[in-house]
Design a protein around this nucleic acid. Structure first.
Lengths: 218, 218
DNA sequence: CAACAAATCAAACGATGACTTGAATATACC
DNA sequence: GGTATATTCAAGTCATCGTTTGATTTGTTG
């Protein structure tokens, strides 16, 4: 077999492991932070055995790596470019599959009405002191990496924090990515409470994929 | 089913159609230029029926579009970002699959020894008049799009053109992409003939994917 | 050492996909 | 209108993949 065919065979191995909705969801979840098999199973609603199985496929194809710590095994993405890769796929799907457009229209119809902020624009506004940034993901994902200067307020806790937020500035919320609902909910709640709020286009993985600065820890 | 799962289902459709070595080869071939079913079958060594079958899968998943002209049906990539997508896949495969590294080492071992030129570097050198650029792909692929200022000399015809090439300048050859052998061959032949020759890292699709200027026609 | 938890393994089922073959459909040219 | 050409369709075979189930390994804790 020609070397070129052999290479395509290998590239297809990578593509094959992307070719499952369950595995894509696992990858998207891991893009937020390293997670245990159990946590991933819970996040995706799969059985533990099935999750483990799919994670091994991802590991064998080079997309994920595992680390054992005591009883638990933690998986994480092997490469910072994987969110970019998934962004390519979703971008192409969104552009060329009518089905995707329909789903987005039906379930994410608020997407454009909430006037997303671009990443460069966000930096400008933060530098100018006009904007406050909140990360509405769960605490552990925030701790694994977040936009510098962002404050962590998980959506569930947002109502309790409403009083403490400043009214002078605009508030920009971000979450896990373009198909995550958390930031939508947050913006909706904030606007309801009289704040001027917008959401960041895309989420943390996309920010990181552009090799922009990232802070860790609390 | 949740909207998120539905979306992943659709994204997996795109990934599924990438998950076959034959289809990846078809995509890579189409990245050079629009081609007829027959031409694609010949380029990949597949049967026409099988080629047609795979092309339809690519079309259904939004990766390719077809156009009928008389007897023939021409297929082309639906999106300029597809080469980028494939670049992501091969990049990750190359970085994380030992198998790929082995194949590259065994069959493309000259890759680094031929000191590739970067795209920005090439532009500088051409502007300075120090370098001549040749496109060693078949004529029809050259005509479908090529780097501005590049001269088309398919590898087969290189020996005949050797006499006409200037000795003062360095010659940079490019071809279909990082796993195409044409530019290697050309550089080897040129060096044998006493020229100072190098190859462009990657090929035309990668150039185009960066939305750099492209010329068409003879 | 026993009891427990987390993850993996192994077997099995149904479903989906790849490729081949031969027939059928378009379109152009004589 | 008939014939040749390019492509697609349809059916069939074989292999692979996804998921579930229950047992097994590995490491921790009482």
């Amino acid at each position: 077999m020609s070397p070129k065919k052999q290479l395509f065979e290998q590239f297809a191995r990578v593509a094959k492991s992307l070719a499952s909705p369950n595995r894509l969801e696992l990858l998207e979840t891991m893009a937020q932070s390293e997670k245990s098999v159990d946590a991933l199973a819970q996040a995706t609603g799969m059985s533990v055995a099935n999750t483990s199985h799919h994670l091994q496929i991802l590991r064998d194809s080079g997309l994920a790596v595992s680390r054992k710590e005591g009883l638990q095994v933690f998986y994480r993405l092997s490469d910072d470019k994987i969110p970019t890769l998934m962004g390519c796929i979703s971008g192409i799907a969104e552009k060329h599959l009518a089905e995707v457009e329909r789903i987005v229209r039906e379930h994410f119809d608020t997407r454009d009405s909430l006037t997303p902020v671009g990443r460069d624009e966000l930096l400008d506004r933060v530098r100018g002191g006009e904007t406050m940034v909140i990360d509405v993901r769960p605490a552990n994902e925030y701790q694994a990496g977040h936009i510098p200067g962002a404050v962590n307020i998980p959506v569930d806790e947002l109502p309790q924090h409403l009083a403490t937020l400043p009214h002078g500035q605009e508030i920009v919320a971000y979450c896990r990515g373009p198909y995550c609902m958390l930031a939508y909910e947050a913006v909706a709640k904030l606007r309801e409470a009289g704040y001027q709020a917008r959401r960041l286009a895309d989420g943390f993985p996309e920010w990181k994929a552009e090799s922009r600065p990232v802070d860790r820890g609390a």
